[in-house]
Design a binder for these strands. Structure first.
Length: 417
RNA sequence: GUGGAUGUAGCUCAGUUGGUUAGAGCACCAGGUUGUGGCCCUGGGGGUCGGGGGUUCAAGUCCCCUCAUUCACCCCA
């Protein structure tokens, strides 16, 4: 095919049966969220660009991964790279801080980042996420994490291990930041090029480096710098999660790339996935809504979950429940009656389809065999007497019934044969 | 943005040191059964060999460019 007709780089066509699986995941996620009290909020897939600039000036998402464009009215717009900023905007714009707090919301939809595609990384991907506004309590962090774990578990992954850390608050982080810079400055010559750059842009990210791991080992741990409140918050959260039977692993080097986080950050990996690929990740971002013109104090926690990654993680141990479909076949000349009968069955709630290819009966049965279900045969002597044939392909059992009795017979297929 | 690997039918892949009209399996369609699937047999459709340029009497094969896929980085879900 001509190159200009190919799908854009890093995007995918989702075909059956994968598309059905995706629907299943969406259903599970939204259902879980609802049981936790998190209701769906839909925001536009594009926003005015400044909304996303709040994600952090130094992050790659904002710096060079944006899908931005100017519309005909001269407005600067950006395809959303993540959900949190958009939800924060919606929370503020709709005055949701006047609702009884906390406000529990979730979202589900496509995200766009112009990065180079690789394993489990796409330019358009789907994220499910949840956001909790209004509570500073560690219980809030816990609930959000428990929801994420519940979804992951529903999908068939046993015993998720939560990788957890706290990156402190405006009280205690500056001191840690200084200590970290000092430590790395003393070893400046041994650092990789990226890290030398990171010293100035985002020192916390030094801990993310996969090259300078040896240097990192002896780097100062933020836990030693936590203020009283941050320390209690972290301790309480850990306790809450373990009380709920969740496994927590403290990750001193987990910092995450978005600037808006404070205190809690977390993520979860899956063994089937390559190195640094998280199924979901999130944290607390008490300052974000304020920067979008929200009230002075608007605490919030949330996570985002990569649906394509979830899909690939569950691939082996998750089967789609097959809906049994009815194939209405016809003898030559009975195309129209078979279409009518199929429609009749559909109106009674069955999944039914008829042949549209003017095939021979033999070919229709072959076709029906591909989806292994029930075949209703229309035409011939039986039709003259107001009857149709019914055949179960599984075991080859066949019988003839009055048209009026057909739907009753089909409702209990397991008793036949 | 950096580095590596790979592009031949819908899918998985053969294709010799460059040499006639590019093959197989699976899948698809039809027939073998004037009204019955799966197995088997026979036949059929389907390819600008990712695209463009170059070398050559001759390119799927060699060279260059480009596009795409993929893996590792960067970063993130």
């Amino acid at each position: 095919m001509c190159a200009e007709f190919q799908k854009p780089r890093g995007t995918q066509d989702v075909l059956p049966p994968v598309s059905q699986k995706m629907e299943q995941i969406r259903h599970i996620a939204l259902d879980c969220a609802q049981r936790f009290g998190y209701l769906l909020v839909e925001t536009p897939v594009f926003e005015q660009t400044p909304v996303f600039l709040r994600v952090g000036e130094s992050t790659d998402i904002v710096q060079h991964e944006r899908y931005s464009f100017t519309d005909n009215g001269g407005v600067d717009l950006t395809l959303r790279p993540e959900g949190t900023a958009a939800i924060a905007r919606a929370y503020v714009e709709n005055g949701m801080y006047n609702q009884p707090q906390p406000v529990r919301m979730c979202y589900y939809g496509p995200m766009f980042r112009r990065e180079r595609p690789s394993a489990m990384r796409y330019r358009q991907h789907t994220q499910f996420g949840a956001e909790l506004y209004g509570s500073v309590q560690p219980e809030a962090d816990a609930e959000v994490i428990l929801l994420a774990c519940a979804v992951v578990e529903q999908i068939g992954l046993a015993d998720p291990v939560i990788r957890l850390n706290s990156i402190g608050c405006s009280e205690c982080r500056p001191a840690y930041r200084e200590a970290l810079i000092l430590y790395y400055q003393q070893r400046h010559d041994q650092l990789c090029q990226d890290c030398q750059k990171r010293m100035n842009t985002n020192p916390l990210r030094l801990l993310d480096c996969k090259i300078d791991v040896a240097i990192r080992e002896r780097a100062p741990d933020i836990a030693a710098f936590w203020c009283e409140d941050c320390a209690t918050h972290y301790r309480d959260l850990t306790q809450l999660l373990t009380s709920c039977g969740r496994q927590v692993s403290r990750e001193p080097f987990l910092v995450r790339g978005l600037d808006y986080y404070n205190r809690t950050v977390f993520e979860i990996n899956h063994p089937s996935m390559g190195s640094q690929v998280a199924l979901f990740g999130g944290g607390r971002y008490d300052g974000l809504a304020t920067t979008l013109d929200g009230p002075k104090s608007t605490p919030a926690v949330g996570f985002g979950m990569g649906i394509e990654r979830i899909l690939s993680a569950m691939e082996e141990n998750f089967d789609l429940p097959l809906m049994s479909r009815i194939y209405v076949a016809h003898l030559p000349g009975f195309e129209a009656p078979s279409l009518v009968l199929a429609e009749e069955l559909r109106r009674k709630g069955f999944a039914a389809e008829s042949d549209l290819m003017n095939r021979s009966l033999k070919a229709q049965l072959r076709d029906a065999g591909r989806q292994s279900g029930v075949v209703v045969i229309v035409g011939g002597r039986e039709w003259e007497q107001g009857e149709v044939g019914v055949k179960w392909l599984e075991n080859g059992v066949q019988m003839t019934v009055k048209r009026e009795e057909l739907s009753d017979l089909l409702r209990q297929p397991e008793e036949k044969g």
